[in-house]
């Protein structure tokens, strides 16, 4: 995100009136950058862009080609395909994170962008959720059920787990959607790129139940 704190949306759409229509809808909440063909989109995009809306059919470069170059450059922001025809499965395989059929409803456009912005934080939230769950798992192997039941720190951990799980699910959005589901899995693969380590397991030896700090560190020990 930029200094202005408004998420940046790049709209690549060759019909000027349509592009300006999107800008009108989105301009209140987001910083909107317009590109009128695929090449311009590639000139405009950089790491500050948070979501890209790509028209499928554009002169010079198609939406699919633009997506390919964006990914080649290592820019991993979510990309929405805007398409006049109901897309096939290939849109999912190409690596788009969502699609919208033309002409979109204003609310649909806003909801899609909001959900994708949320999902960009899902992987971090899942990371924190895993960390807390690993801590719980470690305590379960080291302590008896009675010890855990009597520990305030453990109860506190359980509450934090519930809160984090709810946050992770909220960020993920609707996993019943095919493209949303594949995009979410792709995100966590990208984030863990290089994490081929067969277990960089967290070291939870000798956690003391009365040691509150053992719990507080959970989010920082990745």
């Amino acid at each position: 995100m930029t200094d202005h704190d408004k998420p940046v949306i790049l709209v690549a759409e060759d019909e000027r009136s349509v592009a300006e229509g999107y800008e009108l809808w989105l301009g209140g909440q987001y910083e909107v950058r317009l590109a009128y063909d695929g090449r311009e989109a590639l000139e405009t995009i950089d790491d500050s862009v948070d979501v890209v809306l790509l028209d499928r059919m554009m002169p010079k470069l198609s939406g699919e080609q633009v997506l390919g170059v964006i990914r080649e450059r290592g820019i991993d922001c979510p990309v929405v395909m805007v398409t006049a025809v109901e897309p096939d499965f290939d849109v999912i395989e190409m690596g788009f994170d969502a699609y919208i059929t033309k002409p979109p409803e204003r609310q649909e456009l806003l909801d899609t962008i909001e959900q994708l912005l949320d999902r960009t934080t899902a992987s971090d939230t899942l990371q924190e959720y895993h960390s807390l769950m690993a801590r719980k798992g470690a305590l379960q192997t080291q302590k008896t059920e009675e010890e855990l039941a009597g520990s305030n720190a453990y109860q506190n951990l359980l509450e934090r787990i519930e809160t984090k799980r709810a946050a992770a699910d909220e960020n993920l959005g609707d996993m019943g959607s095919d493209i949303g589901f594949v995009s979410a899995i792709r995100d966590l693969e990208d984030d863990d790129f290089g994490d081929t380590g067969l277990d960089a397991a967290d070291d939870f030896d000798d956690i003391e139940l009365d040691d509150e700090s053992a719990f507080d560190e959970a989010e920082d020990d990745e």
């Binding site: 992987s123 959720y129 996993m175 589901f181 899995i185 863990d192 994490d195 081929t196 277990d199």
Partner: peptide, 13 residues
Amino acid sequence: YMSSKKVFKFLHV
């Protein structure tokens, strides 16, 4: 094939 962290995240989704 993968770290338990990665498998965990996958399974959550």
